[in-house]
Each structure stands twice: as structure tokens, then as C-alpha cells.
Design a protein around this nucleic acid. Structure first.
Lengths: 125, 125
DNA sequence: CTACTACTTCGACAAGCATCTAAACAGGAG
DNA sequence: CTCCTGTTTAGATGCTTGTCGAAGTAGTAG
């Protein structure tokens, strides 16, 4: 749907984001800026085999199945996860590129530059 | 207000987030999940000297001053920036710890683990 | 075929949020 | 002191979104 494989954007404190990039990233961040979706993403990512069945996810919350399905759709639309039906169950998997993109945005800044932040050090990923 | 200096949370795909940690992180992510605030943060962080005056920020948008002030307050409440009045103008500065916390959450995953994600490699920061 | 389970879509409602205008507050200049 | 500029607060409004119940779709089992 959206272009999920854009290289995009330097670290947030490196150079000002363009209006377009900011809007693009905000979509992805909005998807993650929810406790339930954050936990869903974490559960899927840390699940054995790298993928989790919806049934497992639903049981972990005090929410109805439609609500979980809605949150999964938001994550999927944002390009953060991908779902696949295998027989009876639907399995979701994290899209690592998308997560890495967010990680790169909040780049490793040098924490200890007490007043002279002119020379940042970027860790080459 | 909130505890901003918590070490908190392994990478999102490392282990499932606790309900508490997820809620805590969601607050910070909600603050960033907006195009305007994303650009504000980026402008502040990449500004010469590491800090930016509100007047500079206001001019860069088609929004009224109160709206910008509101967004800055959201970022400040989330512990992402800090503001200080010096004479006539107010200067804002990024809090690197907070940004790094987000960066650590979306940790560098090994992209190419095709089915055996048991041993992830963490880059020691 | 019917019955059952797993998941998604639909429609609705309450809460939250981005934005505005108007007004208040802080500091510098005349 | 008064006036002006920069910034924040207060209140109001319209859009977005998290949640639910009910209904729809997909696949398995008998």
C-alpha cells in the first residue's frame, strides 16, 4: 500500500525532516503509539519462530477479538507487520525493515556532549 | 513529571513488553507520532547549538503560535525536550536520553534470520 | 450438506486530540 | 509608568480513534 521500503530520513537530530517525510513517519509512529499495539508488536516479534497466531494474541488481552483484529490491521496498514493465513489460523510476522527504520530515526546520539553538540558521532549500521 | 530516566525495556522484538512498560512508552511515542511534533523535534535537535528559539520554529509552519506552543508542551511533558527562558525568548533543547530510549526500543534486528531467530545480535551501545 | 471455530468487517458511540480565537503573562524599550 | 513583542493559558469546535456488539467470511469436521 504505502511505500514501505523507502530509505528515508536521517536521524531526527541530524537534519530537519521534510514535511513529506514527517507525515510519512508519523503514520508509522501513530501505529506504534498505542499500548496494545506496542505489546502486540512485541509479542509477535519475540514469539518463537518469529510469528504468532492471532489466537495467542487475543488471549493475552482483556479485549474482544474485533478490537485485536483492528489493531493488527493498523499495524499491517502501517507496514510494520505482515499476516498470512495457513489453514485455520492466521499468523503475523514483523517486517524488520520497518522497525529498523524507526530505530534509525531515533538515532544513537552521543549523550555526553555537554554544550558542544556540533560534532555528532553516527554509529554506522 | 513522569519518570523520564528509567532504563526500561529491551528491544521490541526481544521479549514481550509488560503492560506497564508499554503504557509508559506509548506516552512518549504518542508525543512523537505527529508530523508537526516530529518536525519540531527534528528542527530543535538539528539546530546549531543544539537548541532553537520558539520564534524560529513558529515561522516554519503554517500554524498559529498557540498551536506550536501546545505541541512543544506535549513534547516537554513527554520528557523529550526541555525549555528555558533567556530574556525575551524561550529556547528548547532535546533530551538525548529520551530519544535514545526510543532508538533502543526499535533495536537493530538482524534482518536476515530466515526462520531461526533464536540468537539475535545486539550491538552494544 | 450442516455445524462449528477462527478471524475480519460493519456500524455505532465515547473519549481524545489538533486546531483555532481570545485573553493573560513576561520581558524589553521608550 | 505605558506600549510593544514574544510566549503561554483557557475555552470551544470538529475530526480522529479505541472499543464494543452483531454480522459476515474462511476453513475444518462430521
Amino acid at each position: 500500500m504505502a511505500a514501505t521500503t523507502t530509505p528515508c530520513c536521517a536521524p531526527i537530530a541530524r537534519e530537519p525532516l521534510s514535511e513529506t517525510d514527517a507525515a510519512d513517519l508519523a503514520v508509522m509512529l501513530k501505529a506504534v503509539a498505542d499500548p496494545v499495539r506496542l505489546r502486540l508488536l512485541s509479542m509477535i516479534g519475540s514469539h518463537a519462530g518469529g510469528e504468532a497466531c492471532v489466537c495467542d494474541l487475543t488471549d493475552a488481552f482483556d479485549l474482544t477479538a474485533p478490537t485485536i483484529s483492528h489493531h493488527l490491521k493498523v499495524l499491517r496498514t502501517a507496514g510494520l507487520i505482515d499476516g498470512e493465513r495457513r489453514g485455520t489460523w492466521v499468523y503475523y510476522r514483523i517486517i524488520p525493515e520497518a522497525v529498523n527504520k524507526l530505530g534509525a530515526l531515533f538515532a544513537p546520539l552521543t549523550e555526553s556532549s555537554p554544550g558542544r553538540p556540533g560534532d555528532l558521532e553516527l554509529l554506522p549500521v
